[in-house]
Write a protein that binds this DNA or RNA. Structure first.
Lengths: 253, 253
DNA sequence: AATGAGCGTTGCGTGATGTGCAACATCCAT
DNA sequence: ATGGATGTTGCACATCACGCAACGCTCATT
């Protein structure tokens, strides 16, 4: 890996948190100001970084454009969206769509309870990977080796008493999820929130995305939420069929 | 400018056009394959590029996550404020900045006529949503469905004879505003006060905020106030550019 | 005004670091 | 089996990125 590029790219997440001046960037990277300046200039020339008139640096328009392209390349999202809104109109609760990439699980779409808007709320944020239903679905489908590797190097924050406590429990849960073909998160992230989720599969049977329905238990109990599971699975299957081409392929090749 | 970083960043727009394999990347950059490999690896480690099953490279979802995080941490108010005070110093009248949130329109900044001091008189308070210029601008940009839903469940208080009387009239007004890209409130809230406003847009073109200039018609007539429209729009556009990270400065090219 | 602190910027000598090469590893089609 | 196309590795060279130190600038303080 290239040191220079590595440093330059490390600036991006830094600036994503908010504007920063040259000194702050240099300090965060642990390099001399002149070095940071050169890196920032290069990023600036490519439009990834923008300089506001107080001279502080921010992420630039080019990065937003690239992000747009990147998400357009995730064609699962495009295909799934109408199904998600349709399901949302029937059952009303919040619906998430997530993908696994490079050790992370990311929300790539969200349909808010009630309104079909607010699409850009928490989309893009990494998921609470050890507890979320969608995360379990995505990780459960990884090859044994990678699954173990990922599970081992995760942290297991005790969000609630029902959070997944450690790697062993997580792997066991993943095995269950893998077998039954659906997943839940019953108060594992926030005490009062329950989720049920189902996988979306590509033509080769591999899980390419996962969707879930979330609701606070003041609105529906966990048991009631589970009665929605068939609808969630049917929706996920419908998306899978369209994504992998119209033919309702069954067996994993 | 750093050559290595420059080359690495040049890969991103390349991949934005679609997936590419190592050879194609190397050729496009005019470098040896091994060099391209190292750059791609570094990008990969930062999650900016993703390797799909056929080993070709494409843009990574991390880009999306970064952009998302960046916009969440962006503060329109902070960015807009210097522009608002600058405009205020030129034209003197009261200037408002407002955003839409959860069915409401809220003032988030205000520069008082005459004094460039920030007065937190009504900041944070909901706007007279059926008549204010900023409210029209913000609601006009909502998706059709939500716009109708909001318009329907609003009250239409007859502040003055010129107030918006009902949902139908309001929706018609919103259509006009949407089309022309600016809005007015001519005595719709208080008989003697007129406003002209313009939208502030984010990188994706969506309206993230709206600004307006207000003046009592004992100081300037409605016609005179309208002559300020170009300045208001220019200011709003400048804020939009700054907000979305579009570089206004051009020198070394 | 004068002083100084803080910040961004510049030019430069040094050597760490990125570079291309060539050989190797895989895979697939012939 | 054989060849070609593609991704990967290790290495010697010199390019290119590094930190330093000095400069210019703005702003606040005296």
């Amino acid at each position: 890996m290239s040191q220079t590029v590595d440093r330059a790219l490390s600036i991006l997440p830094l600036l994503a948190q908010g504007p920063a001046d040259l000194g702050q960037v240099a300090e965060s990277l642990g390099v001399h100001k002149s070095t940071a300046l050169r890196l920032l200039r290069t990023l600036h020339e490519h439009g990834l970084v923008h300089r506001q008139q107080d001279q502080r640096y921010r992420l630039g328009a080019r990065l937003f454009a690239l992000a747009q392209e990147a998400v357009e390349n995730l064609d699962v999202r495009e295909i799934a969206h109408p199904y998600l809104t349709a399901l949302n109109e029937r059952i009303g609760h919040t619906i998430h769509l997530a993908v696994y990439e490079e050790g992370e699980v990311l929300y790539i779409d969200k349909v808010e309870s009630r309104y079909p808007v607010r699409m850009y709320s928490r989309i893009g944020r990494p998921v609470a990977i050890t507890v979320a239903a969608v995360a379990k679905l995505l990780l459960a489908d990884l090859p044994e080796a990678e699954r173990r590797a990922v599970a081992m190097k995760l942290d297991y924050p005790p969000y609630t008493p029902r959070s997944t406590p450690n790697a062993a429990a997580f792997l066991k849960e993943l095995a269950t999820v893998r077998e039954q073909g659906w997943a839940t998160d019953l108060g594992g992230h926030e005490e009062s929130i329950n989720c049920v989720g189902a996988p979306i599969r590509g033509a080769d049977g591999r899980v390419v995305a996962a969707m879930s329905v979330s609701a606070p238990n003041v609105v529906v109990t966990a048991e009631e939420l589970l009665t929605l599971l068939p609808q969630v699975r049917r929706t996920a299957d419908a998306i899978s069929r369209e994504y992998s081409g119209t033919a309702p392929t069954k067996d994993t090749a």
